[in-house]
Amino acid sequence: MIVFPNCKINLGLYITGKRADGFHDLETVFYPLPVTDALEVIAPGSLQFTSSGIPVPGDAADNLCLKAFHLVQQDYPQLQPVNIHLHKNIPIGAGLGGGSADAAFMLQLLNSKFQLGLQQEQLINYAAQLGSDCPFFIANSPCYATGRGEALEPLSLDLSGYSFLLVHPGIHVNTGWAFRQITPQAPAHSLKEMIQLPVTEWHRVIGNDFEAPVFAAHPVLAEIKATMYSQGAVYASMSGSGSAVVGIFPKNKIADILWDASYRVFKVN
């Protein structure tokens, strides 16, 4: 069985407080986009993880797909060992949630393949144990997120009338470092309200708290954002803690921008 985990972008991101558990409270809007990995599971197998495409760092035994399998197997010991292969296409460390998507899709794949009968709420509970962004990919539709990012509220937000440009210059931003640069502060207006404004107004009122420190450390990201605006984007922002930059353009009006050959560039029309 094969599935195609997709990425997400953040539309606005504010760090609103520091929690007693060491995490931060935030508010953001998650929006799914069809830039995907490919995840294949073969059963019966020997419980191994292999990958292709973008190199996946770290020990394979620590991969979130394997962790998802072990998490479900604790409650369903009848699960047969499986062979897992991930073809990685979503840039890593880019603020696009690729690893979280892989884990969430693994949960759903196991549920389907082994007919476990897990409901969405149960899948979300498993996903929350794997990472703060993982629950979003169970719903995989526009959501207003608070808490660590796991408290999700469905949002009526249709951006099908626009095209998206994602540019990742290969810079890895350490999320822990990025959070340490932020002094938590509630925004003047709730993002939940601001996101209802016309997209053409977002550049005035919706921001990402991570941009100031990350752009200071990596000025090329600010240059990418500025280039998008100069070439017709109605809204542009870094996604998550970076380093992917997202531009929203009028439908089918993404300019032919000559980016550095080392950048990974995705267009979604």
Rank of each mutant, 00 (worst) to 15 (best):
L197R: 12
W202S: 01
S141F: 03
M106N: 10
S160R: 14
H218G: 00
V3R: 15
Y229A: 01
C134I: 07
A139E: 10
I248Y: 10
A244M: 11
I195Q: 03
T50H: 08
S132Y: 08
Y31T: 07
L152T: 08
P213K: 06
F210S: 07
A68T: 08
P250R: 00
R264I: 05
P154S: 09
F49T: 05
N269L: 05
G45L: 11
L166S: 05
A43N: 02
T28R: 09
A38K: 15
M238F: 08
S132R: 05
P142Y: 00
K267D: 02
A20N: 12
N140L: 10
I15K: 02
M228P: 04
L166C: 12
P77M: 04
V72R: 11
E27N: 12
L26Y: 11
Y76V: 10
R264K: 14
A212E: 12
K192H: 14
T175R: 09
S141G: 02
Y229N: 04
G176Q: 14
S243I: 07
P198G: 07
A236M: 01
L197E: 13
T50V: 09
T36V: 14
V173Q: 11
G149L: 12
P5E: 06
S243D: 07
D158Y: 05
N111Q: 08
A94N: 08
H168P: 04
V246H: 04
L123C: 03
V56Q: 06
L166I: 15
I206M: 06
F249L: 00
Y144G: 07
Q119S: 12
W202R: 02
L11Y: 00
V214T: 00
N63M: 04
G45R: 09
A68M: 05
V29C: 00
G147H: 02
